[in-house]
């Protein structure tokens, strides 16, 4: 069964086609990602799913209901984690969970014990009576995610869940999200981090300028749009571009970035050896597995994070 069915979904602001005829489906229990740079239309798509942004055209069903005409019904089955934490800074961590839960028509007798469980989930039990202002960025983010779970949603919408967090905090969050997915919660994640998309998502839409440029699992996308390995070479910023033509024959394709050259090939070490044998001496070199970053670069000619 589909949790979300979007057909030709379009949102036009006065001067911008933020989302342009996007169609996709998300199945129950799936972990689905929208990957793209800032301004690709990911957040707008998320807000249309919650019925808080009215679409210009197209159809959209969430759990079989149109969020524009059945907003409360749709949102009662959703947990929304917005891009920026909008916690109530006047309240402490526990009251943030309880008061938010009230907006789902849930009684205090349910919310009080639920808040304790969620604080435990967010590893914030010791901070229950702490005002939100006194929590670190990672704690606030975890509290925002815990808050989104207060109504036991079947679908969790996460807009850039780990932006601004340090690596350790990100890994803790990914672990928590993965556990929720194991329990059958459908995750819909927007991100401009390829590692996050690879970690969290079964299936991805790659978006750019409001349109879908590719769709598939992270592994399938990499296989389809990239080679197995990538050789990164740095010759110094002035020489990089000059050497593109000379290296053309060495790899399946080459992308020139301002600071380095990316050579796409099945066997990075072999190409590196040939480059060296040819008398070209890169300042640094790196052989790595291809990633979604490479897929995006190949599809759009731009990197994800400008």
């Amino acid at each position: 069964m589909s949790v979300i069915e979007a057909t030709q979904l379009t949102k036009v602001y006065s001067d911008l086609r933020a989302v342009d005829a996007v169609s996709f489906r998300v199945a129950t229990g799936e972990s689905f990602g929208l990957l793209g740079p800032n301004g690709a239309g990911k957040s707008t798509t998320m807000r249309m799913i919650g019925g808080t942004s009215l679409r210009t055209s197209g159809t959209l069903l969430v759990n079989g209901l149109d969020p524009e005409t059945h907003g409360p019904e749709v949102r009662a089955s959703l947990g929304v984690v917005p891009q920026t934490d909008n916690l109530d800074t006047e309240l402490n961590a526990r009251d943030n969970l309880i008061m938010y839960g009230r907006y789902f028509g849930l009684p205090y007798s349910y919310l009080r014990p639920k808040a304790e469980e969620l604080l435990q989930f967010a590893q914030l039990s010791e901070k229950a009576t702490e005002k939100v202002d006194n929590l670190s960025g990672g704690m606030k983010r975890r509290l925002t995610i815990a808050r989104a779970l207060v109504n036991e949603p079947s679908v969790l919408l996460l807009d850039e869940p780990t932006t601004g967090l340090d690596p350790q905090a990100r890994h803790i969050l990914w672990d928590r999200l993965f556990r929720l997915k194991e329990q059958g919660v459908t995750l819909i994640v927007t991100t401009h981090f390829m590692d996050e998309a690879e970690q969290l998502c079964d299936r991805l839409l790659v978006m750019d300028h409001g349109q879908i440029v590719a769709e598939g699992s992270p592994a399938a996308l990499i296989q389809q749009y990239s080679t197995r390995e990538v050789l990164e070479l740095r010759f110094g910023s002035d020489r990089n571009v000059a050497l593109v033509e000379r290296l053309r024959g060495y790899a399946d394709s080459i992308e020139a970035l301002p600071d380095r050259l990316l050579l796409y090939t099945a066997d990075g070490e072999a190409v590196l050896a040939r480059v060296r044998a040819d008398g070209l001496d890169p300042v640094t070199s790196l052989v790595r597995r291809a990633s979604l970053e490479d897929v995006f670069l190949r599809l759009t000619g731009r990197s994800l994070i400008d």
Partner: peptide
Amino acid sequence: ALGSARQA
């Protein structure tokens, strides 16, 4: 938790 229909 109440079902989503009851919540709504």
